[in-house]
Amino acid sequence: MKNYVGVSGSFLKKPHCIILNKKHDILPFNDILPVEKLCQKYDTSLFVFTSHNKKRPNNVTIGRLFDGRLLDVFELGLESFESLSNIKNFTVSIGIKPVLVFLGDEFETVHTLKCLKNLFIDLFHQQETDVAHLSNIEYVITFACVDNKILLRTYRITMNKMGEKNFKVDLDSMGPFADLTLRRNIIASNDLFKKACVKPKIKTIDICYNFGKKIKNIKRDIFKSKLGRVHMTSQDVNKLQTRKMKGLKKARKTRNKN
């Protein structure tokens, strides 16, 4: 089960994750330091850690760091799991941004679940986009909170054109499916979370001038079109191949010399 989680999870995040398969003697809730060290080594802020023991079977620990220090961790127990490879015929193209759906008002009202939602978004969401192409919307990940359990479902989207402008959405179950129970957690203090969420004010001038860094060999003309300059080595005109003629052939002696 552990393996499936790793494989299917990493498949969804493929170009942006590293799987560490070695056995570690790490307990994130007892000592977070080795995790922090590993994260620093691979320059990642998010980590997913799986473990299995008698007390806490099928354990998945999801957490994130801020400035190399722990921000929050959630421990989740897997109750039922169906991986991506179990349900055949469907694959996802790499690097596709999923649609995230959160069902239930508990994700807004309960503080721990609100934090967990934030973490899930951080884990699955990729960069914000200003431009979208409909064919790039391929799958949905749903989180529903029922009886203190989080139901994670993944569906594939198919869109059918209805009328001139509208598209009708149809879903097929794809996997991974999981029922998760909440176990231990560490939530960031309000101050730290606020500090982590600070958005710097960026002046438009700074953006125009590339934050004071000089851009070499690129100019913009009056029509704002980009003009680049390419530097090349000087061309050796003597070696230039021109039209071959018998009369222009070099003498044998000089040819051998060269």
Binding site: V101, F102, D105, I121, E128, A132, A144
Partner: peptide, 19 residues
Amino acid sequence: FPRDLMVFDTNELNIPKLR
């Protein structure tokens, strides 16, 4: 949140059906 491709549905769920 169209830029993030996210939807938060805060309607109450039909819990007996979901059980």
